[in-house]
Nucleic acid binder design. Structure first.
Length: 215
DNA sequence: ATCCCGAGGG
DNA sequence: CCCTCTGGAT
């Protein structure tokens, strides 16, 4: 391990914050007005763009404002409301099962710990970390496909398992930075460091990146 | 064809 | 570790 590596990490964090300023809540592209709405929106975001989730959720939350309402939803009605987000059968079943647990185990409230959140039906570690960091401003580093790809390209990890990547990054990440760092990597991954053709000539991290395609 | 802020089951 | 679930944009 290079003795300058900690300096490089801090520089990466700082440059991303300068390029994509704002809090985790402000950087989150999903529209929500409560932890419950963010939880549902994040479940719907699996293999689906945020814009399509945002197109579906207003009507969904209007029909079913509370966990109680959603737990009692007719399955077909729910499926038709979330159809365009894909995986609609799984998602509808998970949402009904999950909201039933919210009502029966948590008094209709969304819990705010990793253990409780990731124990909910259809809520994995990535979704739990989104809710923790964005809705509750707690330490949490969601590792999605972008965070995984950029972390590998930047040489911040050698792991390919999202859980191991999260552990790698959190071993040195300031806890207050984790959520924002994840959102910024996602934005940077979409706009600059894309999967197919990364725009290294437009990248603010170019001189810090071992995968740069530039001279 | 490939990708999008995944999770559960085998 | 692998597979499956899925529509929509590019």
């Amino acid at each position: 391990m290079d003795s300058l590596e900690p300096v490089r990490r801090v520089e990466i964090i700082d440059r991303l914050r300068a390029a994509y300023p704002g809090s985790a809540k402000e950087l989150c592209a999903l529209k929500f007005e409560s932890p419950f709405q963010l939880l549902i929106a994040t479940i719907l975001s699996a293999q689906c763009t945020d814009e399509r989730v945002n197109a579906a959720t207003p009507k969904l939350f209007q029909e079913f404002p509370t966990p109680q309402d959603m737990s009692l939803a007719n399955r077909e009605d729910l499926e038709s409301l979330i159809y365009s987000t894909g995986f609609y059968k799984n998602k509808a079943k998970n949402i009904i099962d999950m909201t039933n647990v919210l009502v029966s185990e948590y008094g209709g409230r969304v819990p705010d710990t990793m253990e409780e959140l990731s124990g909910l039906p259809g809520v994995g570690r990535k979704t739990a970390n989104v809710v923790l960091s964005v809705a509750f401003s707690k330490p949490g580093l969601p590792v999605d496909t972008h965070v995984l790809r950029l972390s590998l390209r930047l040489g911040l990890t050698k792991e390919k398992d999202p859980v191991k990547v999260e552990r790698d990054l959190m071993s040195w990440m300031p806890e207050a930075e984790a959520g924002g760092f994840s959102l910024r990597l996602i934005l940077h991954g979409r706009q600059v460091c894309s999967a197919r053709k990364p725009k290294c000539d437009q990248c603010v991290l170019e001189d810090l990146c071992p995968s740069s395609t530039l001279a």
